[in-house]
């Protein structure tokens, strides 16, 4: 049986206490939300915080408020199973869809939206047991020197594998980060950095407390298409999230496209989005060209499931499928 390493467990009773504890302990502590990412990582000794700060008792992190007209604020501990349904499904179906594709039903019953955003980056040289990693001399992300995906590289190429992150980026959502020093609210896209190791701009003393969905605009359409091997369990090897605002006549007025799982953070396909503006989605030529442009930002590495060449090759097709979904 795989066992967790020993750690000190703390269960703060309030948000202020939680951020105080995180502030006091700094990098020695990690917050524990659903645990569906952190617990396996700890069992494989990829992450071995000396202290776990359990957030279960903090009801404030479960609060949901707002609606499609005003925008919705979801406490970071909102479970993915809840994101699949309710107000999110009604107003932001692409996000609900993304949440519904994460892992498996029991994991979605436990995993949280905040946790999915803060998901550790993944890599087939890193998501392995301690002995396996010792057998390869470890890797840059933990205990080693080399990035085995790109041995000449001076950075880590582990992959952002969240399904909800690219959708939240495309929707223009924001997150609140709370620390002893106060709180700051930043666009979700700015939560991520292009580095497999330091992939979050969240500081260790900060707690991600809430996700803010902007109001649904007239003519807003969004889609999420996920590429993976099986219909369950699997992380994305490509996720295409697109959000557009259409005029009454069906012309694209605004567009944002993000690709997930093809870099250390969600990759924005700006050229594709810019190309769409002023054009009509019903035109298959438009979709093909936008998909071609979008696929250009996909820079997959050989560190996930399925072969690199194939993933590169089908990115265009999957981008096109996401865009076709916008047509409705």
């Amino acid at each position: 049986m795989m066992r967790l390493p020993r750690f000190r467990y703390l269960a703060p009773a309030s948000l202020p206490e939680a951020v105080k504890v995180l502030g006091d302990l700094g990098p020695e502590a990690m917050p524990l939300a659903g645990g569906t990412d952190l617990v396996p990582n700890m069992k494989r000794r990829q992450q071995t915080p000396a202290n776990l700060v359990g957030l279960r008792g903090l009801a404030a992190l479960r609060a949901v408020s707002g609606d499609a007209g005003r925008g919705l604020t979801l406490g970071a501990m909102t479970r993915l199973a809840e994101v699949e349904r309710g107000p999110v499904a009604a107003g932001w179906p692409a996000l609900a869809r993304a949440a519904a594709t994460v892992a498996t039903p029991p994991i979605r019953n436990t995993a949280t939206l905040g946790g999915n955003l803060c998901l550790d980056t993944r890599c087939s040289y890193y998501d392995q047991g301690e002995e396996w990693r010792r057998s390869i001399g470890y890797c840059m992300k933990r205990e080693g020197e080399t990035c085995w995906v790109a041995p000449g590289s001076d950075r880590c190429w582990a992959v952002s594998s969240s399904d909800t992150a690219p959708v939240l980026c495309a929707l223009g959502a924001e997150v609140t980060l709370l620390s002893r020093g106060g709180e700051r609210r930043i666009p979700v896209a700015e939560l991520f950095a292009d580095d497999g190791i330091r992939h979050l701009s969240r500081r260790p003393d900060e707690l991600l407390t809430a996700v803010h969905l902007p109001p649904v605009e007239a003519g807003q359409r969004a889609a999420y298409v996920k590429l993976r091997r099986r219909g369950s369990f699997d992380f994305p090897v490509l996720g295409v999230a697109a959000r557009v605002r259409l005029s009454a006549g069906g012309t694209v007025e605004a567009a944002r496209i993000f690709l997930g799982a093809v870099g250390s953070r969600p990759q924005e396909a700006r050229a594709a989005a810019d190309f769409l503006v002023g054009r009509r989605l019903g035109d298959e030529e438009v979709i093909r060209e936008a998909a071609r442009l979008a696929a250009q930002v996909a820079k997959p590495m050989q560190n996930t499931d399925l072969t690199l060449g194939w993933r590169k090759g089908v990115a265009r097709e999957y981008a096109a499928r996401a865009l076709r979904e916008l047509v409705g």
Partner: peptide, 15 residues
């Protein structure tokens, strides 16, 4: 767990 399907291998008992 409280009526919801959950994986007992991922939940620290202290929670």
């Amino acid at each position: 767990l409280d009526g919801e399907l959950a994986l007992s291998c991922l939940v620290p008992a202290v929670e």
